[in-house]
């Protein structure tokens, strides 16, 4: 995986490197819409970074810890978490972005880890269920799930805890309609929605303090 500062390491602060830095800064606010920007971008075009199809070494930031992982580019973030890092709290169920059991946070946003390649997660902060709480020190949402009997077989639960954690943070005083819309990315085949809905509605009140 190329380091973002590779051009500086290779050639010091060259004029090319400086221009590239400027280009990157302006890209944050400007779309590639003008002819001038296009020319500048063309001038910066370097040799394409291509890797694989065999193993590549990448760094993944999971629950605040940097992990060195060897994966083929085709490996999903979900499989890297479970099979390379032994973080098996994140569940593999449908493996096609439909059920939500594999839900993690990527840069603080809910995401299906089955539908993201591990190589795409480089440089981003990944939070899994293991990063929310521990058996000795549960997060508030985890505690509330137990109190409200919001699980049965438990297989969808890690994904639902992730989804509920993000939902309650964004909607501390949610209505039932908001819960139904905002929690629509996860499925529970046991049908424990009544309990999960109670937690997402902010009952008990301590969940509103954040997880």
């Amino acid at each position: 995986m190329p380091n973002k500062d590779e051009h500086l390491d290779a050639s010091g602060i060259s004029r090319r490197g400086f221009l590239k830095g400027v280009g990157a800064a302006s890209a944050a606010t400007a779309l590639l819409t003008g002819a001038q920007e296009m020319k500048e971008a063309a001038a910066q075009a370097a040799a394409p970074a291509e890797m694989g199809p065999g193993n590549v070494t990448i760094m993944l930031d999971v629950n605040g810890i940097q992990h060195k992982v060897e994966v083929e580019p085709r490996v999903t973030l979900l499989d890297a978490l479970r099979n390379r890092l032994d973080l098996t709290g994140t569940k593999k169920v449908c493996d096609r972005g439909t059920c939500g059991a594999c839900t993690c946070m990527v840069d603080g946003d809910l995401a299906y880890s089955c539908s993201m390649l591990a190589v795409e997660a480089v440089g981003r902060k990944i939070t899994t269920i293991e990063g929310l709480g521990t058996p000795d020190k549960l997060s508030d949402i985890q505690k509330a799930f137990i109190e409200h009997d919001a699980l049965q077989c438990g297989f969808c639960t890690p994904g639902f805890v992730m989804a509920t954690t993000a939902f309650v943070k964004a909607h501390p005083n949610a209505t039932l309609e908001e819960v139904r819309k905002g929690m629509g990315g996860n499925l529970c085949r046991c049908g424990t929605y009544a309990g999960i809905t109670q937690v997402a509605l902010g009952t008990p009140a301590y969940v509103k303090g954040g997880a």
Partner: peptide, 19 residues
């Protein structure tokens, strides 16, 4: 899934060339 190479170019020109 068949193994594949992965590229993450920095510019649109590079990206188009890779296709």
């Amino acid at each position: 899934m068949k193994p594949f190479a992965y590229a993450n170019p920095k510019t649109i020109e590079e990206a188009v060339k890779l296709l």
